[in-house]
Computed example of a mutant assay.
Amino acid sequence: MKVAIAGAGAVGRSIARELLSNSHEVMLLERQLDHIDSSAVPGASWVNADACELDNLEQAQLQTYDVMVAATGDDKANLVVSLLAKTEFAVGRVVARVNDPRNEWLFDEAWGVDVAVSTPRILASLVEEAVSVGDLVRLMTFRQGQANLVEMTLPPNTAFAGKPVRKLDLPRDAALVAILRGGRVIVPQSDDPVEGGDELVFIAPAEVEEALREAILNL
């Protein structure tokens, strides 16, 4: 997979290293010359260019890339990069970093954003997830489909313990994608049993989250 990353600061470089370790092709776009350091991320292609400029993205042949990651420290720049990537170059997947949570509402499909990643929100969600049993916690929003990644930790004494996944009466469009049990990540099959203390991870539209929470609590 070919991935372009706008912004070669600490966040952009970390993303690039992770992608390269998984054998993806990575291009880093950085407008500040003193931030260019090819030795910091060996294997990546470095381009000294402002990713907010259409001509620069054309020269970088952005249309040949599968994913654009807008990872600068400036929310305005990340929105512009996202919009250009989606509307001018038809990049299939656009992921944008949200620096200020107050701007998160802007990062939607109208600006070309498929997935908005807010570090403060993720950290807050992880805190909630760590202390909340029986509550539905939103971990991430997938803007293009208006769906959310949500988690619920089952109470230890849940009456559903031992029953198979197929017995879960989930609302329409909600899907169980993983069960976290101790140190294991279980991809659920219909006959897999649910146990007290399990962390259930779902993808669900926002409008069915309350119905999902009630369905799990009423197990």
Score class of each variant (00 low, 15 high):
Met1Tyr: 12
Ala4Arg: 07
Ala6Met: 03
Gly7Asn: 04
Gly7Ala: 08
Ala8Arg: 02
Ala10Asn: 08
Gly12Val: 12
Gly12Leu: 05
Ser23Gln: 13
Met27Gln: 13
Asp34Val: 06
Ser38Leu: 02
Val41Lys: 10
Val41Thr: 11
Asn48Arg: 12
Leu54His: 08
Asn56Tyr: 02
Glu58Pro: 05
Gln59Tyr: 13
Ala60Asn: 09
Leu62Ile: 01
Val69Gly: 02
Asp74Ser: 13
Lys76Glu: 15
Leu79Gln: 12
Leu79Ala: 08
Val80Phe: 01
Val81Pro: 11
Ser82Phe: 09
Leu83Phe: 14
Leu84Met: 10
Phe89Asn: 11
Arg93Asp: 00
Val98Pro: 06
Asn103Ile: 01
Asp108Tyr: 01
Asp108Pro: 01
Trp111Ala: 14
Val117Asp: 00
Thr119Gly: 05
Arg121Leu: 10
Ser125Val: 09
Ser125Asn: 06
Leu126Ile: 14
Val131Pro: 06
Ser132His: 07
Val133Ser: 07
Val133Glu: 09
Val133Phe: 01
Val133Pro: 04
Leu136Tyr: 04
Leu136Cys: 04
Val137Lys: 01
Arg138Gln: 14
Arg143Phe: 01
Gly145Asp: 13
Gln146Gly: 14
Ala147Leu: 09
Asn148Tyr: 08
Asn148Thr: 06
Pro155Ile: 12
Pro155Gly: 09
Asn157Leu: 09
Thr158Met: 09
Ala159Thr: 15
Lys163Trp: 03
Asp169Met: 10
Asp173Phe: 09
Ala174Ile: 09
Ala174His: 01
Ala175Met: 14
Val177Gln: 01
Ile179Phe: 05
Arg181Ser: 10
Gly182Met: 03
Arg184Ser: 07
Val185Tyr: 08
Pro188Phe: 05
Val194Ala: 07
Val194Gly: 05
Glu195Pro: 03
Glu199Cys: 10
Glu199Met: 13
Leu200Val: 10
Val201Phe: 06
Phe202Gln: 06
Pro205Thr: 12
Ala206Val: 03
Ala206Ile: 07
Glu209Thr: 02
Glu210His: 08
Leu212Val: 00
Glu214Lys: 13
Leu217Phe: 01
